[in-house]
Amino acid sequence: MDQRTYDRFFSSITDLRGDLFAYAFSITKTREDAEDAVHNAMVKAFDGLSGLRSQNKLKPWLFRILKNECISILRQKKRFAPLPEDIPAAEKRDESGLDLANCVAALGTELREAVVLYYKLGYSTAEIAKLTGVPRSTVMSRLARARELIRKQLEGENYDG
């Protein structure tokens, strides 16, 4: 492996620092698990760098590794869907903010994943399709479904997420 490849790798993951955390958090829903997942993913990606054929595929490859790490951590802890316990105090003071955050937290993993990538990280539907490995129409359907569920939740209807 040449130095240029390493340099590009470190540059890419540094650029993605915030995105990786947000994505991991969307799956694990706790900061500690998200940190662990990102750490593991970075190490695994570094170790497996020689197997990556094209630098253009680094980002979706990295996100896939990260997703697998998140799932691995969740399996070990056998988590279901609790509310995040580590909501910052500043947010707890804002009653409507807390309700709204719970709506996203209560979504299923795949819907939450799409919502965070789209609304927080600003990826387009085409980019999300590449990162998550699903068709674009599936991404769009998931976003539409998330909107509908959150709207119903805010209107007080029951749903099963």
Binding site: R17, G18, F21, A22, F25, S26, R31, A34, E35, V38, H39, M42, D86, I87, P88, E91, D94, G97, L98, L100, A101, C103, V104, A105, V115, V116, Y119, K120, A146, R147, I150, L154
Partner: peptide
């Protein structure tokens, strides 16, 4: 707009521990 607000509220800002780990 509501979706953006909700998502922003859901994802916490980068904790200091994360930055150190990174």
């Amino acid at each position: 707009k509501l979706m953006k607000e909700q998502t922003e509220a859901f994802v916490p800002s980068l904790p200091e521990s994360y930055s150190k780990m990174f």
